[in-house]
Design a protein around this nucleic acid. Structure first.
Lengths: 360, 360
DNA sequence: AAGGGAGTGGAAACCGGTGTCAAGAGCTTC
DNA sequence: GAAGCTCTTGACACCGGTTTCCACTCCCTT
């Protein structure tokens, strides 16, 4: 028996190679080790970039890996690491365009890293919300999570993540946490830019429609706008500030409310593009022409800003870029360099919905 | 040493329990087995609903599982099963609202199943496209994939999936595959309904804007529309059919082209809402009032249909419901019953953009 | 020539589950 | 009363990686 072992083994080996070559079976770390003539531990060292491998050995192993297109099994690796290679995006943002752009940005930042993106919409008002989030993270042993607004603004979530030791990045309009956990969007600066634009055009009686108060961005956008007006010596009349809900319908209603005031505002700044579209509607119903009779501007620069008439002057937020930076920061690969914070700053996009007020 | 083993072991056990109770460690199958006084194999049987467990034993184990909130580790389970508990959504659809609704639907159908959704946008034109898809599936050992249009219409992808033995569901406007792999959207029926609506209003000179030819739905929508006209004895003049691209801009351009024809169409059916919004714009530029001078209708019933003026008469496609059914079909849990195909059929939503033509 | 440290690679245990297979319990059958 | 059967159960190997531990080079001191 023992004497027949050697020939038998070599027969097995050729079987193994045949199975591999025909693609019937994916290569494992044992195959690579055998083909490279080393132990699987050494292959593991190469995969994990351990410095304790002779240059010559590493090159040989890498060649075999490349030749056979080997990639380690994330499940097996994750099991041993006690951590998966999945990144969760936990969100409750109602805007499809924001969500999709954010996902694309995250995937940009993860490309080639071996991580995958698991999406997890949630309801922050649900009684089991925190429980759900915890289950999701612990069951999947997530490598980390990305939190866009407004989940990112929930301190209960941040506490939970710190508590269970899960990596996380919060995306928000202001720094809410240590720098290493934050990507800051600076909505305030965007709103300031819009304020300067409107004042620069000569507007002084400006209506403002706020967003949902549960979003920090609503307050930042209003605050930034007020900053700009104040700096220019223009006062924001609280009578001309109404509460919207980031929806088209709320924009329509708020627009009508603002246009009913006397004297009528010469410009309306809506907290996002959806509401600005609603204001356009209200203006049309009131028989006003935009921008001749009324300037209407929005915030976000989503698709709808260009699909209405006239196309909206608005503030562009670089959602996809923000997502990319968030993902890169989370996985912080070697060779990682912190992204340029300037790239996350919103900027003004001038289109046809804004113009100087009519001379009286 | 050996004599001290027994007491030592029992000390270990209380340590273990302490760690568990304090929540420092999640329960494993071994813990559950120990606490229930059975082997881990039996616990495994309960988890996997094997019929070969005595009722009494099952109840006892289930009680322990519930008490400790135990959930098996998907990675370890997946490793043993040679298959993960991840479902991939592979898509190239450019419409954010479609993508988000589809994701929500899929998550609806997966809720409570223990599966998670991994999103994977792709570029069907890339030279490495099939390679990328294959890598994605094989590396993650996906349980299955969901293919919305237009990826669902790519036979190369379907062949690949069959080849590597990956479960899949194709979502498309026509049956392209065996019933068990399909969720059919029946765009044709929706377009027929719109044709009937327009003919019913009295329109006879109707313009049609097709979508991207790379989407099967474009042809179905046109075909269904033509069916309805033919049945009503109205001929669709090829001169009044123009090629769009499912975008606002293309709708604007095509709308202008159609409105330049003499005699002018009394109604325009755009292949989706985005393009219909573009047509509204073209009508406004041409000084026409909708619906008095021109009826404009769309397809999809996405948010934009209600954010333009006048709100669009359109065809509602139940994207989220379709997604839910696709996910349910893919995981086909016991107790699964095939969803009602009628629920995937689009239906007419009448708003203010359609009206009878002016008497001449 | 012996001693010692750093670099290298193998054997075995482990991560947390599942498959295989055989054995024990309880019951019928001859 | 033993053989034969079904129903339950558990021991053990295994999934594909990583980690621990250790032995073995190789090279440089002393």
């Amino acid at each position: 028996m023992t004497s027949s072992k050697t020939p038998k083994k070599s027969a097995d080996e050729s079987d193994v190679n045949a199975a591999l070559e025909s693609g019937r079976r994916r290569a494992t770390i044992n195959d690579i080790a055998r083909l490279a003539g080393v132990s699987k531990k050494t292959v593991s060292r190469v995969i994990n970039q351990s410095p304790f491998v002779r240059e010559e050995t590493r090159v040989r192993i890498e060649a075999v890996i490349a030749e056979w297109g080997y990639a380690p099994d994330p499940q097996a690796r994750g099991l041993a690491f006690r951590r998966s290679f999945l990144i969760g995006m936990i969100y409750d943002n109602p805007n499809p365009q924001y969500v999709v752009n954010m996902q694309l940005g995250l995937l940009d930042g993860m490309r080639g890293s071996g991580f995958e993106l698991v999406v997890h919409p949630c309801d922050r008002g649900s009684p089991t919300f925190l429980q759900d989030v915890r289950m999701f993270i612990e069951r999947q042993k997530l490598f980390g999570v990305i939190l866009p607004p407004s989940v990112s603004e929930d301190e209960r979530v941040a506490d939970l993540l710190r508590d269970i030791g899960c990596e996380y990045i919060r995306i928000a309009s202001v720094p809410l946490d240590e720098e290493e956990h934050m990507i800051v969007g600076h909505d305030r600066l965007g709103a300031q830019a819009m304020g300067e634009h409107l004042v620069g055009l000569g507007h002084e009686r400006i209506g403002f429609i706020t967003g949902l108060p549960s979003f920090r961005s609503s307050h930042e956008r209003r605050g930034g706008f007020e900053d700009a007006l104040t700096k220019a010596g223009v006062k924001l009349d609280p009578n001309y500030v109404v509460q919207g809900a980031y929806t088209f319908e709320s924009g329509l209603a708020c627009g009508e409310a603002l246009l009913a005031k006397t004297p009528r505002p010469t410009a309306i700044f809506a907290g996002n593009d959806e509401m600005a579209a609603g204001v356009l509607q209200a203006a049309r119903r009131a028989g006003l022409t935009v921008p001749e009779d009324l300037t209407v501007v929005g915030f976000d620069d989503f698709q709808i800003a260009q699909a209405v008439w006239p196309p909206l002057t608005t503030i562009h937020i670089p959602t996809r870029e923000v997502g990319r930076m968030a993902a890169e920061k989370l996985i912080a690969r070697d060779g990682y360099e912190p992204g340029d914070p300037a790239k996350t700053i919103p900027y003004l996009v001038t289109r046809e919905s804004s113009a100087p007020p009519k001379k009286v």
